[in-house]
């Protein structure tokens, strides 16, 4: 038996909304330690990795008697989650050898309980091991700022060059019709931690990435006030959105390289 009671259905809604356009079907791997989801996009350029820990406060109850994999169409899951109120408590339930995943939405005042079942899918996805890496540079910044930068620069070109150096981080685009550059300096004077821009730098990095994917990742902006960008030269960037009281959602994006 698997049963996970999440206090805020809005968190699950936001997660699925941020994934469903790049990742059509995905396996939720459930174990006693929590729920993970790993999926590559169809072009093998982007990968998402979700971790929701069972011992975090976001789960009111969590039970997983044996490891199970729940193969779900994320478009369908998004439709089901739209049936939940944002303040509803959502319970996910499945048997040990499941064909069906059940969603139960309890309204805050417990006056309305709704239940939906969806058929599970057999999804043949290759599980990848993501090596532990010490990144040359980790940028922490407000998530809405990163979203704005990606959105602004995508109007002029297809790829952004991210340049991390000791003063801060530069985002540059050069397209056929024009170019743009946004410089972010490290902030030390800002009161709120979530408004700060910090750059942990071991080595400077200059690397280009496709804006199409970065813009897609920023659909996760509402999950977190901050986003962490981890970069090393000639390796995939990690775009991490911490999820309070649950874990995190990470996106990996392969770099653009010189021809």
């Amino acid at each position: 038996m698997f049963e996970a009671k999440m206090l805020q259905s809005s968190v699950l809604k936001k997660i699925i909304e941020s994934l469903k356009d790049l990742f059509a079907d995905a396996n939720f791997d459930c174990s006693s330690s929590g729920i993970t989801l790993q999926d590559m996009d169809s072009s093998h350029v982007a990968l998402c990795y979700l971790k929701l820990r069972s011992d975090e406060e976001g789960f009111e109850d969590y039970r997983c008697d044996r490891n199970i994999t729940l193969g779900v169409n994320l478009g369908l899951m998004s439709k089901i989650l739209k049936c939940a109120g944002n303040d509803d408590v959502v319970t996910l339930r499945a048997e040990d050898e499941p064909n069906i995943l059940t969603f139960i939405f309890d309204s805050k005042n417990s006056e309305r309980v709704s239940k939906y079942d969806i058929k599970l899918m057999e999804i043949d996805s290759e599980l990848l091991g993501i090596p532990d890496t010490d990144y040359s540079c980790v940028v922490k910044m407000p998530s809405h700022e990163f979203q704005r930068i990606c959105s602004n620069l995508s109007q002029l070109g297809d790829s952004v060059t991210i340049d991390c150096h000791k003063e801060g981080v530069d985002f540059k685009v050069a397209g056929e019709q024009g170019s743009g550059a946004i410089k972010l300096k490290q902030t030390t004077s800002v009161d709120k931690e979530e408004d700060q821009v910090t750059v942990q730098l071991n080595e400077p990095v200059t690397q280009s990435f496709a804006l199409k994917f970065l813009c897609a990742f920023t659909k996760a902006t509402s999950l977190s006030d901050t986003v962490n960008l981890s970069l090393t030269q000639d390796t995939p960037v990690v775009v991490e959105y911490p999820i309070a009281q649950h874990g995190y959602l990470r996106f990996y994006l392969a770099p653009k390289i010189e021809e």
Binding site: M40, S43, H44, V45, A46, L47, E126, L127, L128, G129, I130, P131, S159, S208, A210, T235, P236, Y252, L253, A254, P255, K256, I257, E258, E259
Partner: peptide
């Protein structure tokens, strides 16, 4: 011009 790399070479297949 830059080419889009694939993720495959960066990760280990389990």
């Amino acid at each position: 011009n830059k080419l889009q790399a694939s993720l495959n070479p960066f990760f280990v297949h389990k």
